[in-house]
Amino acid sequence: GIDPFTGEAIAKFNFNGDTQVEMSFRKGERITLLRQVDENWYEGRIPGTSRQGIFPITYVDVIKRPL
């Protein structure tokens, strides 16, 4: 089901994660935001896939912030 505490964002740019914990994505992908890790990073996942990880806040347009 849908978790009411998650947020939502759209990727503004392609992001290629450097490490296992970073999640790569392509511009235009819809991302579920799980939490804000710190002032620069979100943790999120791509709905319908097993992809999950952290990524820079500046790479996405936030539609709804996670609670």
Score class of each variant (00 low, 15 high):
G1W: 09
G1N: 12
G1D: 14
G1A: 13
G1S: 12
G1Q: 12
G1H: 11
G1L: 11
I2W: 13
I2G: 14
I2S: 14
I2V: 13
I2L: 12
I2A: 14
D3H: 09
D3S: 10
D3M: 11
D3A: 11
D3C: 15
D3K: 10
D3L: 11
D3V: 13
D3E: 12
P4M: 13
P4V: 12
P4G: 12
P4D: 14
P4I: 13
P4F: 13
P4Q: 13
P4W: 15
P4R: 11
F5Y: 14
F5M: 13
F5S: 12
F5R: 12
F5H: 15
F5D: 13
F5T: 12
F5I: 09
F5K: 13
T6E: 11
T6N: 14
T6R: 08
T6W: 12
T6L: 07
T6A: 13
T6Q: 09
T6C: 15
T6S: 11
T6G: 07
G7T: 10
G7R: 08
G7Q: 09
G7P: 06
G7V: 07
E8V: 12
E8S: 11
E8A: 09
E8M: 12
E8T: 10
E8Q: 10
A9H: 02
A9G: 12
A9N: 01
A9K: 02
A9D: 00
A9Y: 05
A9Q: 02
A9L: 05
A9T: 03
A9F: 04
I10R: 06
I10M: 07
I10W: 06
I10K: 05
I10Y: 07
I10G: 01
I10D: 02
A11D: 00
A11V: 02
A11G: 08
A11P: 01
A11E: 00
K12L: 11
K12E: 03
K12M: 09
K12H: 05
K12P: 00
K12I: 10
F13R: 10
F13G: 07
N14Q: 07
N14D: 15
N14C: 08
N14W: 05
N14L: 04
F15L: 02
F15R: 03
F15T: 01
F15I: 01
F15C: 02
F15V: 02
F15P: 00
N16R: 10
N16Y: 13
N16P: 06
G17S: 10
G17Y: 02
G17A: 14
G17D: 03
G17P: 06
D18M: 13
D18L: 15
D18N: 14
D18F: 11
D18H: 13
D18G: 11
D18C: 15
D18V: 14
T19K: 11
T19P: 07
T19H: 12
T19Y: 08
T19V: 08
T19Q: 10
Q20F: 12
Q20Y: 12
Q20I: 14
Q20N: 12
Q20L: 13
V21M: 14
V21R: 13
V21S: 13
V21A: 13
V21Q: 13
V21E: 14
E22H: 12
E22T: 07
E22K: 08
E22A: 07
E22C: 15
M23G: 01
M23A: 02
M23V: 05
M23N: 01
M23T: 02
S24E: 04
S24Q: 06
S24G: 07
S24P: 08
F25R: 00
F25W: 02
F25G: 01
F25A: 02
F25H: 02
F25E: 01
F25V: 04
F25S: 01
F25C: 02
R26F: 13
R26Y: 11
R26W: 09
R26P: 02
R26H: 13
R26Q: 15
K27F: 07
K27G: 05
K27W: 05
K27H: 12
K27T: 10
K27I: 14
K27D: 04
K27S: 09
G28M: 03
G28S: 05
G28A: 03
G28Y: 05
E29A: 03
E29D: 06
E29Y: 01
E29Q: 06
E29W: 03
E29K: 00
R30G: 05
R30S: 08
R30W: 09
R30P: 06
I31Y: 00
I31D: 00
I31W: 00
I31N: 00
I31Q: 00
T32C: 09
T32S: 08
T32E: 15
T32I: 15
T32A: 08
T32Y: 07
T32G: 05
L33P: 01
L33I: 09
L33G: 04
L33R: 02
L33Y: 02
L33T: 02
L33H: 05
L33S: 03
L33E: 04
L33N: 04
L34M: 08
L34A: 03
L34C: 09
L34V: 10
L34K: 03
R35W: 11
R35G: 07
R35A: 08
R35I: 05
R35D: 04
Q36A: 08
Q36W: 07
Q36R: 08
Q36H: 07
Q36Y: 08
Q36L: 09
Q36G: 03
Q36E: 11
Q36I: 09
V37F: 08
V37E: 03
V37L: 13
V37A: 04
D38S: 10
D38H: 08
D38K: 06
D38P: 02
D38N: 12
D38A: 09
D38G: 10
D38M: 07
D38C: 15
D38W: 07
E39S: 10
E39V: 11
E39P: 10
E39I: 09
E39Q: 10
N40G: 11
N40Y: 15
N40H: 14
N40M: 13
N40K: 11
N40C: 15
W41N: 08
W41H: 11
W41A: 04
W41G: 02
Y42N: 01
Y42K: 00
Y42F: 13
Y42S: 03
Y42L: 10
Y42G: 03
Y42D: 00
Y42E: 01
Y42H: 03
Y42V: 06
E43I: 08
E43P: 00
E43V: 08
E43K: 05
E43R: 05
E43A: 07
G44A: 02
G44D: 00
G44S: 00
R45W: 09
R45D: 02
R45G: 05
R45T: 10
R45N: 08
R45Y: 14
R45H: 10
I46L: 04
I46S: 02
I46K: 02
I46F: 04
I46V: 09
I46A: 02
P47Q: 11
P47D: 15
P47A: 11
P47G: 08
P47C: 08
P47M: 09
P47T: 11
G48P: 06
G48M: 07
G48N: 09
G48D: 08
G48L: 07
G48S: 06
G48E: 07
G48Q: 06
G48Y: 07
T49D: 06
T49K: 03
T49N: 03
T49A: 05
S50H: 09
S50W: 08
S50V: 09
S50Q: 11
S50R: 11
S50I: 11
S50M: 12
S50D: 14
S50G: 12
R51E: 03
R51C: 04
R51S: 03
R51F: 04
R51P: 00
R51V: 04
R51Y: 03
R51A: 04
R51W: 02
R51Q: 05
Q52F: 11
Q52A: 09
Q52V: 09
Q52S: 09
G53R: 00
G53E: 00
G53F: 02
G53K: 00
G53D: 00
G53W: 01
I54Y: 09
I54A: 03
I54N: 05
I54F: 11
I54M: 09
I54C: 12
F55K: 00
F55G: 01
F55E: 00
F55Q: 00
F55V: 09
F55L: 07
F55C: 01
P56Y: 02
P56Q: 03
P56H: 04
P56M: 05
P56R: 03
P56S: 02
P56K: 04
P56T: 02
I57F: 05
I57K: 11
I57S: 11
I57D: 06
I57T: 09
T58Q: 14
T58E: 14
T58M: 14
T58G: 12
Y59K: 07
Y59R: 05
Y59W: 06
Y59F: 12
Y59P: 00
V60K: 00
V60G: 02
V60M: 03
V60L: 05
V60F: 02
V60H: 00
V60D: 00
V60P: 00
V60Y: 00
V60E: 00
V60T: 04
D61W: 15
D61N: 11
D61Q: 15
D61F: 14
D61V: 14
D61K: 14
V62Q: 04
V62M: 06
V62D: 02
V62W: 06
V62S: 03
I63P: 04
I63H: 05
I63K: 06
I63F: 07
K64H: 05
K64R: 07
K64D: 10
K64W: 04
K64P: 05
K64T: 06
K64F: 06
R65E: 15
R65S: 15
R65N: 14
R65P: 15
R65D: 15
R65F: 15
R65W: 15
R65I: 15
P66F: 05
P66C: 10
P66N: 10
P66G: 09
P66K: 06
L67D: 15
L67T: 15
L67G: 15
